[in-house]
Design a protein around this nucleic acid. Structure first.
Lengths: 240, 240
DNA sequence: ACCTGAACACCGTTCAAGT
DNA sequence: ACCTGAACACCGTTCAAGT
């Protein structure tokens, strides 16, 4: 693991001859950029510090510990969230509005898929996260769900979106293209080597299980699936 | 982080005076037990070795690296998977069978929620994993989905089950009860401190967002949701 | 207010050597 | 075949000190 990092990665310090001041924002931005480029594992305190041309301990003035730094990353990510305006008439069905809201979340997650998973446990720690949860809960209540059901569905909505972005088959951020090709080739081959008697369906879907032909299609299907699910479990009394 | 571990955890070595032989199975079992007891973060090569009364390097004779060891954990977990028999008549609708299969997966995941997330990228590396995927694909094809759609839905089915178990609100494996209480109290308080004008629905659902009143209910809702979703996106021609 | 230096207690892993 | 010892290149974090 370390060996791979050492041999394939050249540490590009982004330090200017004279460094600009550190701040929570520049650190978090650096972390997002690093994750996008080399994957989440590359995001360490020491690496972030060295990229900024600064001692690891410098970061501790801005964040209490790594956990808070990660909170900062998520906050930075969700800051870009643009929620659709609340419609003025009540003519737009709740499930259409819910889809629009979740789509807005998907947009920011897909901008930085490497850090998407971090959002999972941290939605309620930022303003935009509170906002989107509030809107989601409102729509679910409108659909007839109880406060408790709405809470459970809202949590599942958000984590489904995160999982969706993080589970696109064949994708692994920060992997060199040749390594990725090699990995996928091996995976496909191991599936195609299976017994056709025991695993006919696996063989028929081997390609699609290995790599996603169309990422947008995959994501859209996941969103369709979730919305259809919520409509399917909607309390009968409120159905509309 | 380390400070916390050091102060709250007493390293109980399970070594007998005379150690029994190591094996891939005993190591993987130890890892699962450790994760159950103290959370996934506690599972390190060095800790596992020390628990078995052995040098860290001893593990490298049994597993090429930590990645493979984790594969071993997942294999161990999925070995307990008991799939329902294939019904002999075709009178059982596909979605009922799909539910039974996913329920079987949920059973093993819920046995060891701490390692559930590891299954996500590793289903196809074990025999039982191939088996459940094959069955899932078969039912989806029967429902009228294409080989590609079936693959995408199968992946989402499995990752939804994993996420479901890993996302039960308020749960965090390997956390001392008093620490957990404190964390949840703080979370609830921060939600209840929100502005009632801006966040009326969040306030109404604050408790349910903090901690799960009923875990089985939460999981069941998630499963209902998924099945309803698949039925909702089922190609019209094949609907039955 | 913002950052550095030195130190500590951990990681995963390699390589040569022991039985 | 199975395991140990010593070493390496990393981690996050604390604490005291510098400007």
């Amino acid at each position: 693991m370390y060996a791979v990092e050492l041999s394939t990665v050249t540490r590009k310090k982004t330090e200017a001859p004279v460094r600009e001041r550190l701040s929570r924002e520049t650190i978090a931005d650096g972390a997002v950029a690093l994750a996008d480029a080399e994957g989440l594992d590359a995001v360490t305190i020491r690496r972030l510090a060295s990229d900024q041309g600064v001692t690891p301990m410098a970061l501790y003035w801005h964040f209490r510990d790594k956990e808070r730094l990660i909170d900062g990353i998520v906050e930075r990510l969700l800051a870009d969230l643009v929620l659709p305006r609340r419609p003025e008439t009540s003519s737009v069905p709740w499930h259409v509005q819910l889809r629009e809201i979740l789509d807005a979340l998907l947009v920011v997650l897909r901008n930085h898929p490497a850090v998407a998973e971090l959002v999972h446990t941290r939605i309620l720690r930022s303003d935009p996260g509170l906002e989107i949860t509030e809107r989601t809960l409102g729509l679910l209540r409108e659909a007839g769900f109880s406060a408790e059901q709405a809470a459970q569905l809202a949590i599942q909505a958000l984590s489904t979106m995160v999982t969706l972005v993080a589970s696109v088959p064949g994708k692994q951020v920060g992997e060199a293209t040749d390594v990725q090709d090699q990995r996928l080739r091996a995976k496909r081959a191991s599936l195609q080597a299976l017994s056709p008697e025991r695993y006919p369906y696996l063989l028929a879907s081997a390609d699609a299980l290995t790599v996603c032909a169309s990422e947008p299609e995959y994501i859209d299907l996941g969103l369709d699936l979730f919305i259809a699910g919520v409509r399917g479990v909607q309390p009968d009394l409120a159905r509309k």
